[in-house]
Write a protein that binds this DNA or RNA. Sequence first.
DNA 1: GACATGAGAGCAATCGTTTGCATTAATTGC
DNA 2: GCAATTAATGCAAACGATTGCTCTCATGTC
Lengths: 375, 375
Amino acid sequence: MPATIRDVARASGVHISTVSRTFSAPHLVNPETRSRVLACAESLGYRPNRAARALITGRTHNIGLIVADIANPFFPPLIKAAESQARGRDYHIFVADTNEDPAVEEELVHALAKQVDGVLLCSPRMSNSLIEQLSREVPLVVINRQVAGLPSVVTDNGQGARLAVEHLLALGHRQLALLGGPRGSWTNREIRRAVGAVARSGGATLTVLGPNAPTETGGSALAEQVRRCGATAVLAYNDLMAIGLIEGLHAIGMEVPRDVSVVGIDDIALSRLTRPKLTTVATPAAAAGRTAVDMLLQHDAPAGTRGGARGTFGDDRRTTAQVTLQTELVIRESTGPGPAAEVDRAGTPEAEGPGPHPTADPGEVAVTPGEVVPS
Amino acid sequence: MPATIRDVARASGVHISTVSRTFSAPHLVNPETRSRVLACAESLGYRPNRAARALITGRTHNIGLIVADIANPFFPPLIKAAESQARGRDYHIFVADTNEDPAVEEELVHALAKQVDGVLLCSPRMSNSLIEQLSREVPLVVINRQVAGLPSVVTDNGQGARLAVEHLLALGHRQLALLGGPRGSWTNREIRRAVGAVARSGGATLTVLGPNAPTETGGSALAEQVRRCGATAVLAYNDLMAIGLIEGLHAIGMEVPRDVSVVGIDDIALSRLTRPKLTTVATPAAAAGRTAVDMLLQHDAPAGTRGGARGTFGDDRRTTAQVTLQTELVIRESTGPGPAAEVDRAGTPEAEGPGPHPTADPGEVAVTPGEVVPS
DNA sequence: GACATGAGAGCAATCGTTTGCATTAATTGC
DNA sequence: GCAATTAATGCAAACGATTGCTCTCATGTC
């Protein structure tokens, strides 16, 4: 029932190609004709069928964005940033959620493949080899994971975790626990590696609990285990787990930071609203979203393309840059001094570069900002 | 570069129509041929182009879902429920966020129109007339709003708000405040109307603050105003605002529920995790998402359609049912007794049907479940 | 042995656009 | 006054699929 280009052509007495040009190359059609066509189009409520157009131009002006769990507050800022960046380039973002399920992830890439010009794969849980394979079907930019040969943007959660543990060491904690994230998470491995190293060099014992669901529930379910392992300070895979853990600890009579210090990762909006306010590692999610869109669209002529491209754009010579975004530690209320003395001795080593070193500081303090773009 | 149906046809030595049938009507092709075709398709990595297919079948097997603000935790459960319901019917959901901006909303409907079989319009901020107009372009199901002539599913927030206020009255509160939501919100009007009526009949004074941004920030910014207006109990447009308000009040030295009782609406996951835990009106978001998908797809033959439909499906005689989902009050820790006596006198009136009546009850209590499907 | 039957496969039109090329008419240059 | 240019439009072939028809054979029936 909706009007097609043919209806408009008939109504305005011109050939469909003229109608087409009225929209996609206005300078090629007589101003008089153009306005007549526009009037007819308007009155018929005509809108070009983007799918049909995409079929021949090879460009949909859509971008797919696949996230592991839309309910995780980490993603919305990223999504919004991507959307606004895309909108500025005349693109639209379609978001889809995988429920942390690798199979759904794959299915979604296939479903999206031909309806978008590229897919932003956010915190994927599937294997690298599958990702590589899928990247032959549709241009991919991977977020929060590095895959050889594919453009990616990651936040340096390893570095962030290191900052967090150094902060805890400086506070005098020597019994540490790490709440692991979901199986298949690249970030999880990075964090674990970093934490392992810095804990060892700081002379602390580390208990790793996991893998776990990266949610409040996943966190609160671990309260008992945390108590049993005797840790006085905990780093969680993300803020949601940290918040859940605090609640879970509260439920079994342990208070944060009095009995245990807790640090999260992500700095979701929520972490400023809980009581106690959460000490956490801020990851630049919005910047990641923007950057990913830019990387996907980098071979796209910013404005009036002069058409002619066959197949999906940028087929050849896509830059496969891997961008790493730095994180920073935000000290709030969920961390406090460790059980015993020696608060001052620790935390000084490993050539720390410039910037203030985290000490037991009240209020909100940011450590180590910056951005790094290797490769 | 990706293989097309023609490549497969050439490779397996059959006509493209045979390849097509191999996928869409396997029983029409010789088993032998079929397996040969499948083998070729497999080895070429062929996947049917869904966009091209949609062009001729008129069915994309996609559903658009437009939400006002993806960062609002109210939406994820709805989105996930819709996704899973859709997946069961072999449909995919594309989510897009409008940033509470009516203009973006309209643009997104247009962008999605030809790439989906229908759009779920969630908490729209645009005008009814615009919605009606857009519904001529693509089948629409409206969520959290009633629009004449269009299928819709709403949660009965008016009823929920009434329960909340009755609860507050029963606790002895007589100075009430309502934190209004965003301009253009249908739900907001429903809540306001209901609260106005029940407050009046309960002999309480009501201060309405708003409109406001329906976020934590929007809530915390109102703390000072709440104090000034002298209210001892507050109902917020949603949980996010309620949580923000609690935090804002805390910052100016007022404690909840000691000094002020606060009730939210939505029962987002978070409201169980804040301190104090939030008393709130639970709205069945997931059910809303599922129902909306069902309503959109109701004229869709569940399984093997025997094709032939021209244009978008269900053109005629779409049922325009308006489903209303009941809400329930969940009493947690953010509400407490009012300033003075007479706790027992209030809250008894208006023929309350069956079910326990909310009294100052510790723990978690649910009131008035159920589902109603008029028209 | 003639004929209806039906299975399997090919043909070609179609969906709604875009775009290279051909056509026409009007303008310009000399 | 005529060729050469330019501006505006039409023509038709794509894009990648689906699907109603037609065509060709076996097969089964009487």
